[in-house]
Nucleic acid binder design. Structure first.
Lengths: 233, 233
DNA sequence: CACTCGTTGATTGTCGACCAAACTATCGAT
DNA sequence: ATCGATAGTTTGGTCGACAATCAACGAGTG
């Protein structure tokens, strides 16, 4: 649930009176980003006072609220009188997340394929072309960005706000695990072969194929991850 | 996201000093229950002071926290300086929720079927037998309870905490819409015919069938709902 | 009479101080 | 060295105050 607080108008009187306080959302984003990038590692305790030191304009109430919300998102855990800490995910959690992704993103692909949204489909095709253009390059950074954009577009194309919301909640934990994985060139090839087929199915309105292929695509991703046997703390 | 705060120990000193204040979780449950039962109707504003009047031991901070969390659950919306109000769901929201349910509960059925959990499967079979026993009765109340138990058990059987969490978030909004719908006897028959087939597929480990049937079952539910053309405000 | 524009009361947003409860580390006695 | 008391730290939670905004109401003007 983004925005809302972002639209809070900055009143002149207030801005003049004191430094604009960080809304809880912003504190939340800051912590979330740190978790995503790995500067907060799993198990690490998130001490309220420390966060306030690093974000001087954040007050304790804000930090507390942010931590509460992150806990309800499942990104941190809160133990009574011990405070918040970055949640540890097990190998089985990863499997579960991927199963959920398969279900949700598969459905999204199917619904997008069945929908009459030529403009969005053109954009998908465009991204696909870009992806094809760099699949043999070594620009992993760029591939990752386009890859994310490709997935995001399909979710948007499904027009399902609930599916979007749920997948958003899976994104960070999964990403945090993914940064440990160096995409091999071979993996990129495989992934993009899958992408191509999915894009084609969506653009041509073959909903059932789109869903099946998307599921296979995600399942492959999980297999690659599992094969790497990354050390999940 | 249950528990956690429920485990808060009631210290003697505190309990003696004054009435135990309601934790945010409890306020949340109270509001949620009211929404579910329809005593808070969509669009209705949830004024902090009013809630404090009705729950004398609840403090403002707790009420506010509860509302914030309910907002992040998507059950209420918060507009700045206008406070919280019960979220209105459109007809299209309903459709989206059912699509998400199809994806998630279908996957849950498949995973349960594929899992080696004889004890849980026996319990499912037992509930199914009970359901069969009353499918021609007029005890809608009891059917509804068993129906919920049946769904819950399949989700538990999938062993997927994320899917469970997501479906939990869909439950209340959907239930709130469902109470408006009096299950017709015919609908009960149809529903239970679906149930029987699904139970059988799960117990016999036919994952693919279980998923397909569960999807059809939920899709039927949506159709029934749509046909009723209930007035969603 | 309709319309604009302050004024006022109600409600929410935010903060900071305060205290209690629980955890944690230190230090002393045996 | 081990155990237990003790002090400091951190979190859980409340309260009161004040600012910002909204909403309703009424006065003045054309």
């Amino acid at each position: 649930m983004p925005a809302k607080t972002d639209s809070r108008p900055v009143t002149k009187a207030r801005a003049a009176a004191r430094a604009e306080p960080l809304a809880a959302t912003e504190v939340m984003d800051w912590i979330r980003e740190r978790i995503r990038r790995g500067s907060f590692v799993p198990g690490q305790r998130l001490v309220e006072a420390d966060i306030m030191r690093e974000l001087p304009t954040a007050t304790r109430s804000r930090v507390r609220e942010a931590l509460q919300r992150l806990a309800s998102e499942g990104l941190v855990t809160i133990e009574e009188f011990r405070g918040a800490s970055v949640k540890r995910f097990t190998h089985d959690d990863l499997r579960q997340m991927y199963r959920a992704r398969m279900a949700l993103e598969g459905m999204a692909a199917a619904d997008f394929a069945a929908a009459d949204k030529p403009e969005l489909k053109r954009r998908l095709q465009k991204i696909q072309t870009e992806l094809n253009g760099i699949e043999n390059s070594v620009d992993h950074e760029r591939f990752a960005r386009l890859n994310e954009e490709w997935h995001r577009l399909i979710i948007e194309g499904s027009g399902n706000e609930f599916i979007r919301m749920f997948l958003e909640r899976l994104r960070i934990p999964i990403y945090r695990l993914l940064i440990a994985t160096f995409y091999s060139a071979r993996r990129i090839d495989n992934a993009n072969a899958g992408h191509r087929k999915i894009t084609e199915a969506i653009v041509n309105g073959r909903a059932r194929d789109a869903e099946r292929l998307m599921r296979e695509h995600i399942a492959e991703g999980l297999e690659t991850l599992s094969a790497m046997d990354l050390d999940i703390k």
